[in-house]
Design a protein around this nucleic acid. Sequence first.
DNA 1: AGAATGACCGACTCGTCGGTTTGTAGTATT
DNA 2: AATACTACAAACCGACGAGTCGGTCATTCT
Lengths: 206, 206
Amino acid sequence: MMQKNLKRMATMQRMQVTGLELFYKNGYYNTSVDDILNKLELSKGAFYYHYESKEDFFIQIIENLLVRKVYSMLIEPVEGHENTSDLIMQCYDNALETAVHNEMDFGFVLGNFISEFNGRNPKIMKHLNDIIKIWEVNLVSVIQRGKFEGYIDRHADAEGVALFIMSSFMGVRTLMVETAPSARKYRFMSQLRLFLKSIENKQPAV
Amino acid sequence: MMQKNLKRMATMQRMQVTGLELFYKNGYYNTSVDDILNKLELSKGAFYYHYESKEDFFIQIIENLLVRKVYSMLIEPVEGHENTSDLIMQCYDNALETAVHNEMDFGFVLGNFISEFNGRNPKIMKHLNDIIKIWEVNLVSVIQRGKFEGYIDRHADAEGVALFIMSSFMGVRTLMVETAPSARKYRFMSQLRLFLKSIENKQPAV
DNA sequence: AGAATGACCGACTCGTCGGTTTGTAGTATT
DNA sequence: AATACTACAAACCGACGAGTCGGTCATTCT
């Protein structure tokens, strides 16, 4: 009976992975359940045996895949105890690198879905916003800690800095989709570095 | 015979204005031609008398409405000869204010459509990208001029700064859609001010 | 007045998509 | 061996949406 459950979960997992891939590529409303099923060579019956609806399916994708990916790509990497702005730089440099190679980076996936569901599906929006909040809260606390540990200027506004970083990151991803992603990444990172330098603590505790 | 043309253009204009409104609110693929027609109390026949297809209709909206709005909201306001960063601040402060009141601001409209059409409709993407390019080229040249006129540090990377401003603006609009738009606008503008201060010319020519 | 044309109506086609229902091969249970 | 349940398959339903088409009616031209 553990075997049973394993099979069930394997199929659901396959559906979710392919689902996220297609939803990301074509948009949620532009991807039919059949598109996903065809790719997996499964039938409608299989889908509605495991999920209540397309919406339910998508929410499970958010909870199972999106949340974890955002965690591992945008949250965990900045949680070390080294110099705060170095950590942030490395994290976002890395995240943008996946974008250059046209892979899914999950900060952008998030931004895409938010603009797709905003004002259209409050239920899904709530789940997406929860992820944004987790990201934001974490970034704020990382910056706060940077202040305590002497890396960041004590006068810096942690909420403001976090918002600015998140905004510029999500925005540059939109601008990288068509034109010279690699050059734009480089330019963007240079400016982000300047910005982070400007809020570093000038008289670090020795 | 001029009367004729006037009637034609009036109807087409009404369709486009309502079309943009609904496309913005619900997305392009999520808005049916009938939705627009019902709101205007017009029929399918009227629509396909004036436009070849839904796509043709949308492209005309871009050329007639979007381009001009971006011009008047994001390009013209920064073209004065006062202090460059002041002009930029005022322009984006103003653009975000419309966002706070849930109106259409056209930087965001642009970002929304880009993420909706990216990878799905190359033809429309081309038109949207053209607007982005116009915006970018203009912002770069404004910063260049700011350097010549002594407002901006000569060592600043104009392309980088422009990209950073555009990115952060488009990004913060996404983050303003659900949570505390007014507070986020304030925080964002503070950080933008800091960033612009950091590239101002420290020894202005007297 | 009669013909032509511009602007529009509304019914219809044809395809798509979310969701339902019925059936069934394999596996586990009793 | 009979039963029941899991994990699907396949056919189907109703809606909705883009685009078509024959027709209408007022205005303009001749």
